[in-house]
């Protein structure tokens, strides 16, 4: 979609991206608080990292560890997540964005780019996605789909029965929901680290365009 050295993002992608970014932070923060009410592993997330209001105040008020507000966030955030996910998927498929920018991605090119990246020898070319990036985007899109489906199985285990059997039952769906969350958090860490390394990608996601095509940049500056 872009000329070499220039990164552009369509308005639909930018809206979808930022709504989803907000939704994911809400879902993770509130999800951690909900997890803390009944941990499936022998640890709890620190309260400061969770979303759902002051824990002590809620405990003092009526013995509720702030789970009510966390659930309210979670079941509001899910609509934003679903909407932004559908927007990004539909746009990606029908505009050709996925085919153009995220395909092809094969095991050989992934391995080549992955090894190069591991040795810090993979240059970032604005407007171009290497095989590792492509694989990462597919992986996170898949993880979010798993998140949504396992989340529905947990939210409505009776009305959607036997959906939970896909995950080995209700508890299985909780575990899958947790594992997919870990995957998304991992993606977020890598994603944010890379943005920190190449900040111009952030500019493109905010303003729609960034890069070094000199003439084009001058024109943009003049019109503003």
């Amino acid at each position: 979609m872009s000329e070499p050295g220039v990164q552009t993002h369509a308005v639909a992608v930018r809206i979808g991206h930022w709504v989803m970014a907000f939704a994911i932070l809400v879902m993770i923060g509130s999800g951690w608080r909900i997890y803390n009410a009944e941990p499936i592993l022998p640890f709890r997330f620190p309260d400061w990292a969770t979303l759902g209001g002051d824990v002590e105040a809620a405990l003092a008020r009526h013995g509720d560890p702030g789970v009510a507000t966390a659930l309210a966030w979670h079941f509001a955030g899910m609509w934003l997540l679903l909407a932004s996910y559908l927007l990004l998927i539909l746009w990606g498929v029908f505009s050709g964005h996925f085919r153009r920018d995220f395909l092809p991605v094969g095991p050989r090119s992934f391995l080549r780019d992955f090894l190069a990246a591991a040795r810090f020898r993979l240059p970032h070319r604005l407007g171009e996605y290497n095989a590792v990036q492509r694989a990462f985007y597919w992986a996170v899109l898949t993880a979010i789909a798993v998140m949504i489906v396992s989340g529905i199985a947990i939210w409505k285990p009776v009305q959607t029965y036997p959906l939970e059997l896909l995950f080995g039952g209700f508890q299985g769906a909780r575990i899958v929901h947790f594992v997919a969350m870990c995957g998304i958090v991992l993606f977020l860490c890598v994603h944010l680290a890379l943005v920190a390394l190449v900040p111009s990608t952030l500019r493109a996601m905010v303003f729609g365009r960034s890069g070094h095509a000199v003439a084009a940049t001058r024109m943009v500056e003049k019109t503003q």
């Binding site: 907000f22 932070l25 809400v26 923060g29 400061w48 990292a49 979303l51 759902g52 209001g53 002051d54 105040a57 702030g66 507000t69 966030w73």
Partner: peptide
């Protein structure tokens, strides 16, 4: 701010 959104929630 969102991540440490205690005040936000209340």
């Amino acid at each position: 701010t969102l991540l440490t959104g205690c005040d936000l929630s209340d």
